[in-house]
Design a protein around this nucleic acid. Structure first.
Lengths: 127, 127
DNA sequence: GAACTGTTCTAATATATGTATAACAAACGA
DNA sequence: TCGTTTGTTATACATATATTAGAACAGTTC
């Protein structure tokens, strides 16, 4: 697991960690059925507190990305193949909207926004 | 100004406000040169504290979206026409990446992600 | 000159974030 | 079986962020 935490970032550590795990799954470097390190092991690895890692894992579980088996470990769910749910789709769009609005106001043209989106998709999935 | 604040949201009030002002500018409902209400007037209007509105305005100024003239008011900068700066572009991409990664993991196909991006752009700019 | 403006200051409260320790009970592995 | 590991839970503490409140100040506006 190649994870890098910046303790001084304005993004909370547990969010940084959750985001990076999501990115690893999107890239296919973590697959459905793979197990995540124990909260203690990963915490020690990243030099952060056990509870901080635990909070990340529960955020991922709440989003439906992993499942936590008590007293056992955390397992990555397979990437959903049947298409995204309406609820999740709505959430994603609500998150994208303000960022795209900001991009427009800062002078990024719709064409460039599309290009950058494509670029990110290629980076993540190779498509 | 049609602004709606949800006090119980997990998104801070000052962020909600800044986002909505940005969206109004992106939509063209606020234009370069337009003035924003005074911090006291808008705070009263939204039933929030003056300092919360002030924090929003300063966030917008920090992003280069408005300028604040001390003892006078806040004026919207024109939408940048010369293209986005590299620094701003980098920031936008860093914000988009984790959301797009999450969309992929939750089963949104690259094609649908592109479609939704287009849809948001149309909603905002009519393009 | 009165009203309004953003600024600054102090203060209080609530919530969020992160760390530190410890104990518990279930699961795991040898 | 038995020791180790696991996630869980509880308490405590420190710091930062978010929000509100009230007041005073000095420049701007009309």
């Amino acid at each position: 697991m190649f994870i890098q935490i910046e303790p001084t970032s304005d993004i909370p550590i547990y969010t940084q960690l959750a985001n990076q795990i999501i990115e690893l799954i999107a890239r296919g470097q973590l697959k459905g059925g793979d197990t995540l390190p124990s909260v203690r092991a990963l915490a020690s690895d990243l030099s952060v507190n056990m509870h901080t890692v635990n909070k990340s894992y529960h955020e991922l579980e709440h989003k439906g990305i992993i499942r936590i088996v008590p007293k056992s470990g955390a397992i990555i769910n397979p990437i959903v193949q049947e298409g995204i749910t309406n609820e999740n789709s709505r959430r994603i769009i609500e998150q994208l909207k303000p960022i795209i609005a900001e991009a427009i106001v800062l002078g990024m043209s719709p064409e460039v926004i599309q290009e950058q989106t494509t670029s990110i998709l290629i980076t993540l999935k190779g498509e």
